[in-house]
Nucleic acid binder design. Structure first.
Length: 551
RNA sequence: GGUGGGUUCGUAUAACGGUUAGUACUCAAGAUUUUCAUUCUUGCAAUAGGGGUUCGAUUCCCCUACCCACUACCA
């Protein structure tokens, strides 16, 4: 009776999906794909009070961005996604659209004696709880207190039956058995036992909004959707006994899914679980995508912060799971092959933003120059730089211009130029957004000179020599004869170094003076790289600028 | 308070009951480089505490401490 693996991610659309939620979805997805099964997204929107418009769309988009694509569920537009060859129709995938099916299951339990009608009002129960708390006790709605409360167990049928019609906010509660040890198995945590006396009679269905609570909807839907493994957050572990008992009450033990409870993501410092506040406080995103709430408060997202989805997913996968060896870099396909619930860590995983950054850096390096160039161009445009596809082609403005690689005056650069820049700087960055800070001097003449570096290198005996090197570069014909206007890095580097060495000039000091003129600081690419990129004309401009500024 | 879960360097983690307790991130130092960055090398740094079981315990058992979750007509 081997069943096809079917797992589900069942978020509640009450806000943006937390990165812990993404991890839960990811582990579900990896498990499904590894077993050649289906990954299903089910929207658990049975709480009309907490429903947040846009949250569902956000969740689907976030998972999409991560490459976690459902075989069944809803897509970002709200359309049903279903496996084409599936025999069983499982739609709809939103519990609010399934409301019609839950009541009969709840009533079936009442008929079998596993549940009962309860007529206590929320106020009455709140009063009971307050009373118990005052006496330093815990109020539990169970076999002891049940008798003194208003329900179909404590009252004669003649009394409660009419209440079903007249009373509009009754509930159906599970009848928790007395003093029974529920024995459970968790794929991650092993064997667990709990005595039912510590549990209470949970509400399964509410007459007020004709909707089930999580527990009922969850079990019924998992059964109907033929879910084989339930992989969910640790916060559900305490209700596992109830869920076991529910499967038993329905007589569905044979097809009961296996359970795996994942530990929570903890904040990077201090105590407690990772929250939105930690991100704001420590300066990192806790959500995959940017989210703006009803009050207009914006929460940053990994996508908008410049993370590659592969890096984000990889980082998340390693938070609470490891392959058993030293490998740390995994593509989604590799994760699918390597993943196993047996190697999921039981304890909570503290999130480390530094490591997240490191992952992005690693992935940045694997990207092609062309790909990174495409990502860099919008950043350049934000800084007023125009990038054209070829040296001689029409600008968007309409005017035709000729750009010889770089036109600093008009702030126009060729695609080819940008790509060269990218190839030289990509190993120095963690994010594409860093490119501008690292390489702005390759697009704009420096406006200021770092004081500390000026003090260290800008001395007459150094800069007079630096000017001679600049003159040499300007006169260099690149081996192309007198007509050769520019040169490559390879062409200039040797002769330039030869000049300095043959005259026994102090290489470091001279170069840094030149670098100060070109970059505005004593950091950055090699001089040969810079001058071959920006060209003779711009070199002259920058020498002139620094003369004016510092002499 | 009750119930359940958890505890290896600062962080993420590895280690059939037998290891000088490994790796990565961070940090520090050194090498390389015309500077910075990269790269490379090295270093700092852990089994929560106490009892057992055992020839031998990070590993198994018990107690304590601490952390987390749950304790709603929320999920």
């Amino acid at each position: 009776m081997d069943r096809k693996t079917r797992v589900r991610f069942a978020p509640s659309p009450t806000g943006p999906l937390h990165m812990g939620g993404v991890r839960t979805a990811l582990y579900n997805y990896l498990y499904a794909k590894q077993h050649g099964g289906d990954f299903i997204i089910r929207i658990e929107d049975t709480d009309s009070q907490r429903f947040v418009p846009g949250a569902e769309k956000y969740i689907i988009e976030a998972l999409n961005w991560c490459g976690i694509i459902p075989d069944e569920g809803v897509d970002a537009e709200g359309n049903v996604v279903e496996t084409p060859s599936e025999r069983h129709p499982h739609a709809p995938y939103r519990q609010s659209q399934r409301r019609g099916i839950y009541r009969k299951y709840a009533e079936e339990l009442v008929e079998k004696g596993y549940a009962y009608y309860a007529f206590d009002t929320a106020e009455e129960l709140a009063a009971k709880r307050a009373e118990a708390e005052a006496a330093k006790e815990t109020f539990i709605y169970n076999h002891i207190t049940r008798k003194s409360l208003r329900n179909s167990v404590s009252m004669p049928e003649s009394e409660w039956k009419p209440l079903l019609e007249t009373h509009t906010d009754w509930t159906i509660r599970f009848r928790m058995p007395e003093n029974r040890v529920v024995k459970m198995d968790d794929l991650i945590r092993g064997h667990i036992e709990v005595n039912t006396d510590t549990l209470d009679d949970k509400v399964l269905w509410k007459r007020a909004d004709e909707l089930p609570t999580y527990h009922l909807a969850n079990i019924v839907d998992d059964h109907l959707m033929e879910i084989t493994e339930v992989i969910r957050g640790e916060e559900w572990l305490p209700s596992l006994p109830l869920h076991y008992l529910l499967y038993e009450a329905f007589g569905w033990q044979d097809s009961q899914p296996r359970f795996a409870h994942l530990s929570l993501l903890l904040k990077p410092d201090g105590k407690g679980k990772l929250s939105k506040r930690d991100g704001d406080r420590l300066g990192f995103p806790v959500f995959p995508l940017k989210w703006t709430n009803a009050q207009g408060e914006v929460s940053r997202g990994y996508r908008e912060d410049g993370y590659f989805p592969e890096a984000f997913v990889n980082m998340l996968a390693m938070l609470g799971w490891n392959p058993g060896d030293d490998r740390e870099l995994f593509t989604m396909d590799e994760l699918i092959k390597a993943f196993s619930l047996e190697r999921v860590i039981k304890s909570g995983a503290r999130f480390n933003p530094e490591k997240a950054k490191w992952y992005n850096k690693e992935y940045l390096r694997t990207k092609s120059d062309a790909e990174l160039t495409d990502l860099f161009i919008p950043v350049l445009e934000e800084h007023g730089i125009q990038v054209v596809a070829c040296p001689k082609c029409a600008l968007t403005a309409g005017a035709e211009v000729t750009v010889q690689g770089a036109d600093f005056k008009n702030r126009i650069f060729t695609h080819d130029y940008v790509q060269k820049v990218v190839s030289l700087i990509k190993e120095r960055a963690s994010f594409v957004a860093d490119f501008w800070d690292i390489a702005s001097y390759l697009f704009v003449s420096p406006q200021t000179y770092v004081e500390k570096d000026v003090a260290k290198f800008w001395k007459e005996e150094n800069y007079t020599l630096a000017f001679q090197v600049a003159d040499f570069i300007e006169g260099f014909d690149g081996g192309n004869g007198p007509a050769g206007p520019e040169f490559t890095h390879e062409q200039i580097e040797g002769p330039m170094e030869e000049l300095i060495r043959s005259r026994e000039w102090p290489m470091g000091k001279v170069m840094n003076c030149l670098r100060l003129a070109l970059v505005g600081a004593s950091s950055g690419l090699g001089i040969a790289d810079i001058v071959s990129l920006i060209g003779k004309k711009e070199l002259a401009v920058r020498i002139e600028n620094i003369r004016k500024a510092l002499m």
